[in-house]
């Protein structure tokens, strides 16, 4: 099955996630502002219903200059978000009361990361050895994924808001993971001895959202055997246009508790009423 952070293969309707539905743009792509005249106002009214780039007009067969440049600006923001370096120190600094530990995946750099998802799902050998071992209910993994920008903007706040709702549970040191894919959390939880992994990861940037964070909950992950069907996803965490940190935290904390009660996650949880 597909997930927003790692969409592969088929693109018929995938699993519906507990997600906010963001609207709006980052301010550089809004065509309405530049349109004038009666047609401009008419299309602006329709654009209340969709962010799609409708009613752009034409220069011959092609896009008018301003719309071509607006597309390029949006693409540039997405490209830069994919390639912006992860700053784990900044995330650690935003979590002053929590112990943190830094790890890398087996993908040494971004070029490799983009071409070798298998390496992004495995710990670098040294990283695995450095992880603390213990017994915890939950481990939070803050992973750069495909948008460090999203992680820098939202991850620490979601960790703080979620742990505040789980104060009766034991929380492992927060793992800050570089060049990481969602499944890296399986190995981390397994090595550390944590029951549930919550991976907060930068989603693949779109043209209207380069800073969207996804959260993937996996109960009792088994490295190499857990699949996407065993996970629960909260996507589009991106206030103010997407899901708020507090709403994401409430959903995540609810999922953590229900998974613990059921002793299972993924599809088994999805069949329950939405929290």
């Amino acid at each position: 099955m597909t997930s927003p952070a790692e969409r592969e293969g088929a693109r018929d309707g995938g699993p519906v996630t507990a997600a906010g539905t963001g609207t709006g743009t980052d301010g550089v792509t809004e065509p309405a502002a530049a349109d004038a005249g009666a047609d401009g106002a008419w299309w602006a009214a329709l654009r209340q219903r969709t962010q799609a780039r409708i009613g752009l007009g034409r220069a011959g067969a092609a896009l008018p200059t301003r719309h071509r440049l607006a597309l390029q600006a949006a693409h540039a923001a997405a490209r830069d978000a994919v390639h912006a370096p992860f700053d784990p120190e900044a995330v650690a600094a935003a979590l002053p009361a929590m112990p943190t530990v830094r790890v890398r995946s087996a993908a040494p750099d971004r070029l490799t990361y983009l071409q070798r998802p298998d390496l992004g799902r495995r710990l670098d050998d040294a990283a695995g050895a450095a992880l603390p071992r213990g017994g915890w209910d939950v481990v939070f993994v803050v992973a750069d994924g495909l948008s460090s920008r999203a992680v820098h903007a939202h991850a620490a706040a979601v960790v703080l808001a979620t742990t505040a709702l789980l104060d009766d549970m034991t929380i492992a040191p927060v793992v800050l993971a570089e060049q990481a894919r969602v499944a890296l959390g399986d190995e981390i939880a397994d090595v550390m001895g944590a029951t549930t992994a919550v991976v907060l990861i930068g989603e693949r940037p779109g043209m209207s959202a380069a800073d969207s964070l996804g959260a993937y909950l996996t109960y009792a992950p088994r490295p190499g055997r857990t699949t996407d069907a065993d996970r629960n996803c909260v996507s589009n965490i991106r206030p103010p246009l997407g899901l708020s940190h507090e709403a994401a935290a409430a959903t995540l904390a609810g999922l953590v508790r229900r998974a613990a009660e059921l002793g299972a996650g993924g599809v088994a949880l999805k069949d329950e009423p939405a929290s």
Binding site: T50, R53, G60, A61, A62, L63, L71, R204, M207, A209
Partner: peptide
């Protein structure tokens, strides 16, 4: 629309591109 799919989050050809090609 404009080569930008706002649901699947990727870029494809636009209606303008098809007009160009026909032309």
């Amino acid at each position: 629309p404009g080569g930008d799919d706002i649901m699947l989050n990727y870029q494809s050809a636009s209606y303008h591109d098809a007009l160009y090609l026909r032309e």
